[in-house]
């Protein structure tokens, strides 16, 4: 495997983005969506997740390690690029740049979000509907969360497109074009779930 590090790391980075991080994001936003049915429905759904056996081990294996690897290696990838969108103003080139911008922003957003919720919980706070309602009571924080959620759904949808190309599933230009449409629909659907959920905490 020596000398093959870069190839292995890039493929692992691509895989982690979809499995497990992408799946986790969809599960996370879907549970949040319960908030649209009231505080009790949300607390019940969130409480269910906390009942997962060996929670800390599962969190570490499925969330923390993949996300840390994806984030750190992703920053390295982002800063080895030299964007040239003024000279080459094509759709895919803008997606390329946005994927890197949202990725770097997501590190800031997720670090803040984990500090406010998961680390707060470890320090004794209770994670429930009221906790989130208090956070997004501040309009600036609500805006920060909305930008964070849309960045995450974009990064997932566009990353899914790249995943299919990077693993050699979509080879022909036609299949890649169809996949653009499919991932766009995924983006719209997941963004709707995520944004509607965060707005439910704000009212």
């Amino acid at each position: 495997m020596a000398g093959n590090r870069e190839f292995f790391n890039r493929r692992l980075h691509s895989l982690f983005g979809v499995i497990p991080i992408g799946i986790f994001l969809i599960v996370h936003l879907t549970i949040n969506y319960q908030a649209t049915k009231g505080a009790e429905a949300y607390n019940a759904a969130a409480g269910l997740m906390e009942k997962i056996p060996f929670l800390l081990a599962v969190e570490t294996l499925v969330i923390y390690i993949p996300i840390l690897f994806h984030a750190i290696y992703g920053v390295y990838i982002s800063f080895t690029a030299r964007p040239n969108n003024i000279r080459f103003s094509t759709f895919r080139n803008w997606m390329f740049l946005l994927q890197r911008i949202t990725g770097v922003f997501l590190i800031i957003f997720i670090a803040w979000h984990v500090w406010e919720t998961r680390i707060a919980k470890a320090l004794g706070a209770e994670v429930n509907f009221d906790m989130m309602a208090n956070i997004v009571d501040n309009p600036a924080m609500l805006a920060f969360y909305i930008v964070g959620i849309v960045s995450a759904t974009f990064h997932l949808s566009n990353g899914l497109w790249s995943f299919f190309v990077s693993w050699g599933i979509t080879v022909s230009p036609r299949s890649q074009r169809v996949l653009t449409t499919v991932t766009l629909l995924i983006f719209v659907a997941v963004t709707f779930i995520g944004v509607r959920a965060i707005l439910a905490f704000a009212v």
């Binding site: 493929r11 895919r92 080139n93 390329f96 990077s166 050699g168 979509t170 080879v171 230009p173």
Partner: peptide, 30 residues
């Protein structure tokens, strides 16, 4: 090598000979 491609797909637009470079990269990925 191959894994460094970031899929901006500028190459296939710029190639003066119209070579399907991004199709080549995706085929090699497979």
């Amino acid at each position: 090598g191959l894994a460094n491609c970031g899929n901006s797909q500028n190459c296939v637009q710029a190639c003066p000979k119209g070579i399907p470079l991004t199709t080549s990269i995706a085929a090699l990925n497979r």
